[in-house]
Design a protein around this nucleic acid. Structure first.
Lengths: 136, 136
DNA sequence: ATGAATGCAAAAACTTTGCATGACG
DNA sequence: CGTCATGCAAAGTTTTTGCATTCAT
């Protein structure tokens, strides 16, 4: 992702913003909390305040560069929005996150909303899953 | 719901617990935050601490008497679990909440989990919807 | 240079916890 | 009467905000 994308979003290409984008793209973890991004930056020797992380992530979400997700647990996680729409399953044992998309479910959601006199604006779907133990 | 149900859950039938159950069943709102339950009790002239509300609601959730839901917004809401499994749609304009259940979606979720080598333990689905404006 | 962005610390919002008092069975 | 539950206040978490300083253009 280029500094260009920041400018397009009306955001100056500042050091903290570039670093945060880099972390979200580069580090192995695709879903990170604000705190995780913060620690990651500290480890990299970068001086960025936690408040800035929150401010920047919120701006990125508004700009559509990043998605915010609520997987339970009392805090939000952020992911680069470089993939088309998808939902998530979270392993209740390991915390592992898998992304998936199912057009059948998507369609059904639109139908259900319509049936109740609404139009679908957005949705949040998280499957909580577990690896079957031997013999299940 | 009887004091019996509390005892079955290993909970003494105390005044606060009975009152909170009553509110969750009786007041028009089916989905209430801890704060809302608290205010409702104050309005009714009941002396119950907010901490007790949180403690009691958590106990009710563990006992299966009540469900906790996270509809975004930074706080949880609670609903009496007197209805079979269902999901929710929330109107982004009015906050109105509608419950629904769709066996097609349920089935698909189990399949998707299985396809990825997991078993479905639970899920959270919230549709964010809006009433169509004239001409949509 | 000038407005926007940052860092720090303080505060806000929601929820949990410690401890002495009081209520249930 | 013993134990569990409550109330209050304090602390915990996550996130936001005010304000002086610094940075990007």
């Amino acid at each position: 992702m280029d500094p260009q994308d920041l400018k397009k979003a009306g955001l100056k290409a500042t050091h903290p913003r570039l670093k945060i984008l880099e972390i979200l793209e580069g580090s192995g973890k695709r879903h990170m909390s604000a705190e995780e991004v913060y620690k990651c930056l500290l480890d990299a020797g970068e001086e960025v305040g936690l408040a800035t992380i929150y401010r920047v992530l919120t701006q990125f979400v508004v700009a559509g560069l990043v998605n915010r997700r609520n997987f339970d647990g009392g805090y939000a996680v952020y992911e680069i929005s470089n993939a088309p729409h998808h939902d998530h399953m979270v392993c209740v044992d390991t915390g592992e996150v898998v992304e998936f998309c199912d057009e059948g479910i998507e369609m059904r959601q639109r139908e259900i909303a319509r049936k109740h006199g609404f139009v679908l604006v957005d949705h949040a779907l998280v499957l909580y899953v577990r690896r079957p133990k031997a013999g299940e």
